[in-house]
Design a protein around this nucleic acid. Structure first.
Lengths: 171, 171
DNA sequence: GGACAATACGAGCGATCACTCGTATTTCAT
DNA sequence: ATGAAATACGAGTGATCGCTCGTATTGTCC
């Protein structure tokens, strides 16, 4: 049977030292993905850029795909905290101002590293990291939905949140 | 000095046989680019898919990039004939109907092989095929501009053509 | 039919890839 | 202090990459 490459971390880092190693690996992976793209991001180069031996890399991630998935997860977590805090800040504002502020925040968030977002989005199908991404989308959707229902003044449809995310994502 | 890879065909095919070889190579390159993407499209596999030896491939194209450029050029030529005939068909219509028909034609044209278009667009910067693409854009722009000036009824700006192309392209 | 160019062929080269494994070093509970 | 577990290391493996080059085949012209 054709084995699809493993995409889960191999072991969790229990000591301080190894946690630093894992962080360096994920960070270096993101950096190389941005500067060179997925296929030029060889495991050897990632390890070198992270200041970590190739052996240590494979001690924590069983494949190149697993590393990319780790970057995707981290990116999702970061985005989610941004979304959460943005919605919290806006919760009390009237809807039109609130939406305006949210769009501004989203654009700002994506201006941080649009290229990373693009590269990661391209690799989602290849790595099969759909579950995590969908969880992210579900939570964002739920939060925004709650915000909308708190301000059920001028509700036209419940689609706009999705539309907004699609737009921002494709930027 | 760092040599950038050559992107021009190595020699022109003078006999019938070799023209068939070149056609098969470009066709196979397009097919593999669509199905597997740029980096999985190895020259060995392209040659095999074209039913051509690897040696013959390098007799006509000095590099993998040159092959991709050939595919881009062919794609541009095909698109240009579509644009030309669409504008010719629409020349007599009033502006609003004409634009509508043009947009429909553009969408239809891109539905033919959107994935090829996407892959090629991604490789344009890497291959430096900008000249040809810009020539294509210039000609399209010129043709559309002429159409607009023939119907200078409701002209708001001359930008719309560019905007239209950007939109359609990104689809 | 003979000579010469055009075309086609594919084994193979060096580089790089993702990845393994045996070994050295560090951490930490005892 | 000590021994086991955790961590780090990097040379090395087989596969594949882009690409070269010597050779065989086909077409053209006299």
């Amino acid at each position: 049977m054709a084995r699809r490459p493993l995409t889960h971390p191999r072991k969790c880092a229990s000591q301080e030292r190894s946690r630093a190693t894992v962080d360096a690996l994920v960070e270096a992976t993101a950096r190389i993905l941005v500067s060179d793209g997925f296929d030029k991001a060889s495991t050897n180069r990632i390890a070198q850029a992270a200041g970590v031996s190739i052996g240590s890399l494979y001690q924590y991630y069983p494949s190149k795909e697993a590393l990319v998935v780790a970057v995707i997860d981290r990116h999702n977590r970061q985005l989610l905290t941004v979304v959460r805090s943005a919605l919290a800040e806006v919760a009390a504002l009237p809807l039109d101002q609130g939406v305006r502020a949210l769009v501004a925040a989203a654009v700002e968030a994506h201006r941080a590293d649009p290229k990373l977002h693009r590269v990661l989005a391209e690799q989602i199908p290849r790595t099969g990291a759909l579950e995590g991404v969908e969880a992210f989308n579900r939570e964002s959707y739920g939060l925004f939905r709650a915000y909308l229902e708190d301000h059920r003044d001028e509700v036209r449809a419940v689609d706009p949140d999705l539309a907004t995310f699609v737009c921002v994502t494709s930027i």
